[in-house]
């Protein structure tokens, strides 16, 4: 399992490397993109995942001790925590969709000025317009960030959002696989597969995977959500 996790580390390593490269190029755009995300849901999700890592360690212990009720309880708790995470995640994606923060090729026209200060009509993507709205609604520093940005920079925030969707999307996929494994372990537990000090290794190995999913989130959280500027007043679901 550790060997398999090596491949997972490098899999996420690939996208993190790409992320780093662009963050070096476009620090401002990444900050703006992160500011537009929903920090409240992310924070709640962080704690949910950490708790689920905790419950699965307890499940290993119960399996080792042969406490069937405890084992089932902790497995169910882990599954519930994971599922709630996914529900929040879905809510978050829906929120982003409603705000129009989805990179696309759709274009629209806006009034702006060219380099010499002459008013012109410029073709920009719908995404950039939506981003401007979202940041301005957040007021304060978020608005200040938005005001300083040119339209070209707003376009580039799409790169941040491509990272946001692909990284969290892959993480969600891994979670779904993990939940499937957990359910399988639960069924095994129900069938009395685990006996004291025997076979608990199955849960232990599977827990490695689950912890790894948690580990990925631990890094996604500061890189995606906490890279921007958030203020407590504008927290919402």
């Amino acid at each position: 399992m550790w060997l398999f996790l090596v491949t997972e580390v490098l899999f996420f390593g690939g996208v993190l490397c790409a992320y780093t490269a662009y963050r070096i190029w476009y620090p401002k755009e990444f900050e703006a993109g992160s500011t537009a995300l929903n920090p409240l849901i992310a924070t709640i999700n962080t704690f949910l995942l950490l708790s689920s890592s905790f419950t699965i360690t307890l499940a290993i212990r119960s399996a080792y001790k042969g406490e069937h009720a405890g084992l089932r309880l902790w497995l169910v708790a882990t599954i519930v925590l994971g599922t709630v995470f996914l529900c929040f995640k879905a809510r978050e994606y829906y929120g982003d969709y409603e705000e129009g923060l989805v990179p696309s090729q759709q274009k629209t026209l806006v009034d702006t000025v060219d380099e010499s200060g002459k008013p012109i009509l410029k073709e920009v993507s719908v995404f950039a317009v939506n981003l401007k709205h979202v940041l301005e609604e957040k007021e304060g520093k978020a608005k200040a960030i938005s005001d300083k940005m040119t339209w070209n920079e707003r376009e580039r925030v799409q790169i941040f959002f491509m990272f946001y969707y692909s990284m969290t999307g892959l993480h969600v996929l891994h979670m779904i696989v993990g939940l499937g494994l957990l359910v399988w372990q639960l069924i095994l537990a129900q069938m009395g597969f685990f006996r004291p000090t025997e076979r608990y290794i199955y849960i232990e190995v599977m827990s490695l995977y689950w912890h790894f999913v948690d580990l990925v989130w631990i890094f996604l959280f500061p890189l995606l959500y906490m890279a921007g500027i958030h203020s407590v007043e504008h927290l919402h679901f």
């Binding site: 631990i218 500061p222 906490m226 958030h230």
Partner: peptide, 11 residues
């Protein structure tokens, strides 16, 4: 994690 969140909310 609390610390990470705090850092996230400060500039």
């Amino acid at each position: 994690a609390c610390m990470a969140t705090l850092i996230g909310f400060t500039d």
